[in-house]
C-alpha cells in the first residue's frame, strides 16, 4: 500500500487557473479557476453539458484524441502544468486513474482484470500478481463476494460489482488521484451506497474528483463541491456550506431544482 508522503506544505493537488477548453469553434470551458485539495473528495456538479466531464477528462488528457479539442491555461500539478505538450500521457494516466460512467471491465476473468494492468506495468512475479488480486479486490470490498470464482468472466458480475472491479483495476497500479465520471449513475441505490462508502474509505489515500449528477451524492460524500454552469465554475466551496448556504443565486436555484 502506498500512502505517498509528499511534503506536508503542499495541500493542493491541482491548481487550475485561466483554463479554456474548445471543441473546434465551440468553447466548452470558459476561463475557470479551481483549486483541488489533496486527500479530499471534490464533487463537480452541474447540468448536462456544463463542462464538468470535459474538465475531468482534460486532467488525465483523455480528450487529446478528440478531433478539434484544444485546451489553454494552467492545470498545475505538483511542479508542472498538465496541459503542456511534453507530458508523458502514459505515465500521467498511470498516476491519475479514471473510472467511467458505465462499468467497462475487460472481457476477461475477474482476476485477469487486475493482473493485466499490473503485467502491462512490468510486474511479472506470479506470487505478487496473485497477492495483488486479493489486496485490490479487498480494498473495494469485492473479495468476499468473488473469491471462489476469480476465473469466471467479469461480465458474470452485477453492474455494481463490475464498477467496483473497475475501481480495483484503477487502484492496482497505485495512482495518486482517482477521477470518477458519474461512477454510480448506471447503478441501483444499494450498489450506489456501496460505491459511496468505498469512496469515503479511499479518500485517506487518494485525491478523488467525482463528477456527479446526483446532488445528494455530492452532499453525502464530498468534502468540497464545485458547481459548473455553462462552462464556468459558479461556486466552489465546502460541501456543507454549499448546500446549506450557497453564496451565488444560480447555485441556490440549481440546488432547489429550479433548473438543470
Amino acid at each position: 500500500m502506498v500512502t505517498v508522503a509528499l511534503p506536508e506544505t503542499i495541500e493542493t493537488a491541482f491548481d487550475v487557473q485561466g483554463l479554456n477548453i474548445f471543441y473546434g469553434a465551440k468553447q466548452a470551458i470558459n476561463d475557470i479557476d479551481l483549486s483541488i485539495k489533496k486527500h479530499e473528495i471534490t464533487a463537480l456538479i452541474g447540468p448536462s453539458g456544463c463542462g464538468k466531464s470535459t474538465f475531468l477528462r482534460s486532467i488525465n488528457r483523455m480528450n487529446d484524441d478528440v478531433p478539434g479539442f484544444r485546451a489553454e491555461g494552467l492545470i498545475q500539478y505538483d511542479d508542472i502544468n498538465l496541459l503542456t505538450d511534453n507530458i508523458d500521457t502514459v505515465a500521467l494516466r498511470k498516476e491519475i486513474g479514471m473510472v467511467f460512467q458505465n462499468p467497462n471491465p475487460f472481457p476477461k476473468s475477474i482476476a485477469k482484470n487486475i493482473t493485466q494492468p499490473l503485467k502491462e506495468h512490468g510486474i511479472r512475479s506470479k506470487r505478487k500478481l496473485t497477492e495483488q488480486v486479493e489486496t485490490n479486490l479487498r480494498r473495494v470490498g469485492l473479495w468476499d463476494e468473488v473469491r471462489d470464482r476469480l476465473d469466471t468472466s467479469a461480465y458474470s458480475l452485477s453492474g455494481g460489482q463490475q464498477q467496483r472491479l473497475c475501481i480495483a483495476r484503477a487502484l492496482c497500479i497505485h495512482p495518486e488521484v482517482l477521477l470518477l465520471d458519474e461512477p454510480a449513475s448506471a447503478l441501483d441505490p444499494i450498489a450506489t451506497a456501496k460505491i459511496e462508502d468505498l469512496l469515503l474509505h479511499l479518500k485517506d489515500h487518494y485525491t478523488i474528483i467525482l463528477v456527479t449528477h446526483n446532488l445528494q451524492q455530492a452532499a453525502r460524500v464530498a468534502d468540497s463541491t464545485a458547481f459548473f454552469y455553462q462552462g464556468e465554475v459558479v461556486e466552489h466551496t465546502d460541501t456543507e456550506q454549499f448546500f446549506s448556504n450557497p453564496k451565488e443565486k444560480r447555485s441556490e436555484d440549481y440546488i432547489s431544482g429550479r433548473f438543470g
Binding site: R93, F100, F106, P107, K108, P117
Partner: peptide
C-alpha cells in the same frame, strides 16, 4: 469504453490496440 479503459490505465496506444482492442 474498452479503449478508454485501456488508455485510462496508462496503456500506450499500441498496447491498447494489442491487449484490449484485438482480443475483443
Amino acid at each position: 469504453q474498452q479503449k478508454e479503459a485501456g488508455l485510462a490505465l496508462g496503456y500506450t496506444h499500441w498496447r491498447t490496440i494489442t491487449t484490449v482492442l484485438l482480443p475483443s
